[in-house]
Amino acid sequence: MFGFLLFLHLAGLMVWLGALLAVVVILPMLYKQSGAATAHANPFASRIIRVFGMLAHPAAAIVLISGVFMIIDMDLGQDKPLWLEIMEKGGGTVILLALAWTGILGRKARKRLIAAAGQAVTLTGYRTASASIMVLILSIVLIVSLKI
């Protein structure tokens, strides 16, 4: 059972990071294509954000749920190493923060893109949030990998 949970955990993490990376890479390409530091309201930018939410949010939930079940399955009690404490508490906090933060900012960005009707819309806050979440996720993965 633990092996299947680990598979779900790692697969969810890959999909989640992949979706974040896609947003961080593709949205600036839209800016360069329009020749300005803003994205013109088009269905493509809105669709990118919607697809990101459809991929990243369930993947993050899978990472959280599989992680909780793996920690329960380990049954270490109070004698957990520091890296496992960081993974448990820090990882859970990052996932919940990411779900709320990117969900709210993504919804606001999509509303602005839809309401703009061809005008320029800045999405730097959404991109910055996505990049920040990526850095936090990779920090947790580094700590767990090094077993600090």
Rank of each mutant, 00 (worst) to 15 (best):
I62Q: 04
A109D: 03
T122F: 10
A36P: 01
A22L: 11
Q119H: 13
S66I: 05
I114L: 12
A131R: 07
R50G: 02
S66M: 11
T38R: 07
A59R: 14
I143E: 01
I48V: 15
D79H: 15
V144S: 14
M70T: 04
P43Q: 15
G92N: 00
L64Q: 03
S66Y: 06
L82W: 09
R110P: 07
A131K: 06
L30Y: 07
A129L: 02
G91Q: 04
L6H: 03
S130W: 09
A61K: 07
L8N: 08
I114A: 15
H40R: 13
L30C: 08
A109K: 03
W83P: 07
G77C: 12
K80Q: 11
V141D: 01
I71K: 06
I48Y: 02
L138R: 09
A131Y: 12
A56D: 14
S139I: 08
V94P: 05
I133P: 00
L105H: 06
V24P: 06
Q119L: 14
T122C: 12
M14A: 12
V15W: 08
V63P: 01
R127I: 09
L64S: 01
F44P: 05
R127M: 15
A100S: 14
R110S: 04
V15I: 04
R107F: 08
L105S: 08
F69H: 03
M29F: 09
L20E: 14
H9L: 07
L5N: 04
F2M: 04
R50E: 14
M87H: 12
M1Y: 11
A131W: 05
A60F: 00
F4Y: 11
I72A: 14
V51A: 10
I148H: 08
L30V: 10
P58E: 14
Q33K: 13
L6A: 04
G125A: 04
G92L: 01
V25H: 10
I114V: 14
W16P: 09
M87I: 08
R110W: 01
A120G: 12
L21N: 09
M87E: 13
V68S: 03
K108Y: 12
G125E: 09
A61R: 06
I104R: 01
Q119M: 10
G125L: 05
L82N: 02
M14V: 15
K108A: 09
L97A: 15
S130T: 15
G103E: 03
L146A: 00
F2R: 13
H57N: 07
V94Y: 06
T93K: 05
V25Y: 15
S132L: 02
I114E: 15
V25Q: 15
I104E: 07
I48L: 05
L76R: 11
A41G: 09
L17Q: 09
A19F: 10
A98P: 05
M134K: 03
A37D: 09
V23D: 03
G103S: 00
A22T: 10
L136Q: 11
A117R: 13
L97K: 08
G106P: 01
L96R: 01
A37N: 07
S139Q: 02
V24N: 06
G53Q: 13
I71N: 13
I86H: 11
S139T: 03
D75Y: 06
K111Y: 12
I48R: 01
A100T: 15
V23E: 00
A117M: 12
A39F: 05
I133L: 03
V51Q: 11
